[in-house]
Design a protein around this nucleic acid. Structure first.
Lengths: 225, 225
DNA sequence: CTGTATCCATGGCGATACTG
DNA sequence: CAGTATCGCCATGGATACAG
């Protein structure tokens, strides 16, 4: 938080916000994370020490409020001041969606993808009973190749080991393609036609799957002509 | 521009934008600067080497276009992609205005203030003939104590040495007060009443002066209750 | 679960001078 | 006017291990 020596409100805002990871922590809080380890999971490459430091700074400037429950477990929430960063983050995301489309392989993190899908799954569209979708990213190393998404009632869970339930649908593709589908960079129909995606299971399930999974919020952002 | 290893568009946007000074260079371009030295003047504490580096990066990612004229003089302009950062910068400024109100003495740069006033003076409100306003910041060291704003026709100029013209109005105050008036943090009437501001000259001129000078764009942002 | 504690390397950035 | 060149620091932040 080195000062810019300017009274301009943009400069004053950036003194707080332009430090590495800061906006991503805020984004994570906006997405609903409140626990230290949830924030870590949303930013896996951030060291815990740095996360602590950022949270302290954000607390000091009034963006975040830290609360400890009776058991001593900490949680973090956005204050009204922090909540007002939402339009900023939305605009940033929309701009990034429109103009920073190129993704490097290092941007393709299966944990982040699955975690992001899980947390925004439109539960109300899924069948009542337990429904299990298995993702297989053929291009990934064994440890992160297979993922199971289990939806039941009003809960969605993910595992990276076979939970043993009957699988209703299997999705076979590359991590990049799945990320692109999630971001709305490509359509399911196109990926299927290009045979970069295969969906196994009853055709009724296969047909509904795209809607069941949904897309990341920013997928709706119109792209430049 | 170290990568975050995330496909999230907010993260991709921040890879470009969270480097120190970057947004302020963009803000300066949005305010109308196009020359290297104009950009420097808008960010006086930034080293020229770093400005070059930032401009190169912004050019590479497509935010800025560099053009050389016949004489070899460079100018920088926002591309459509860069222009679309305007809502981001506006939101950032609005947030900074609302929530980062405390200004340190090191934020009070008279050059930036006068330069900012000069470039947004509402010329059409001023008298036809030459009009000269002299600012005196009693709390500042001799070198930056006095400033002359000369408006004539469709041009506004500033000097830090007496240009020798007859002065139509004199403004005597502290730099902090003048900054606060400019930012809309206080009203002229309040500062006058508190005797932290004195305006010398014909009463008709003194009455019009606040309108002649105007306020920074973000001054209109409503403050938190 | 929620952090601390270290350690280390790097490279970002500030400062200054200089040039075609 | 529009940058280069150089230098050196120190703070940032990455990695890892450990603790209440």
């Amino acid at each position: 938080m080195t000062a810019y020596g300017q009274f301009c409100p943009v400069a004053k805002a950036m003194e707080v916000l332009d430090e590495r990871w800061t906006i991503l922590v805020v984004r994570e809080l906006m997405a609903g994370s409140t626990r230290f380890n949830e924030l870590r999971r949303g930013n896996p490459k951030m060291s815990p020490a740095l996360l602590t430091k950022r949270l302290r700074t954000l607390e000091r400037v009034g963006v975040v409020q830290r609360v400890e429950d009776a058991a001593g477990r900490a949680s973090y929430r956005l204050t009204p001041c922090g909540e007002e960063l939402r339009p900023v983050v939305e605009q940033l995301g929309a701009w990034g969606m429109r103009w920073i489309g190129e993704l490097g392989v290092e941007d393709l993190d299966p944990h982040l993808l699955i975690w992001d899908i899980r947390r925004t799954v439109p539960l109300e569209l899924w069948p009542r009973g337990r429904t299990v979708v298995c993702f297989r990213f053929g291009d990934q190393p064994p440890r992160t190749q297979q993922w199971w998404l289990c939806v039941q009632g009003d809960e969605a869970d993910v595992c990276d080991v076979d939970p043993g339930f009957a699988v209703d649908a299997g999705v076979e593709t590359t991590l990049r393609t799945m990320v692109e589908l999630w971001r709305g960079d490509r359509r399911w129909s196109d990926a299927l036609r290009a045979e970069e995606l295969r969906v196994d299971g009853p055709s009724s399930v296969a047909r509904e799957l795209p809607r069941w999974l949904g897309q990341m919020t920013f997928a709706a952002v119109p792209r430049p002509a």
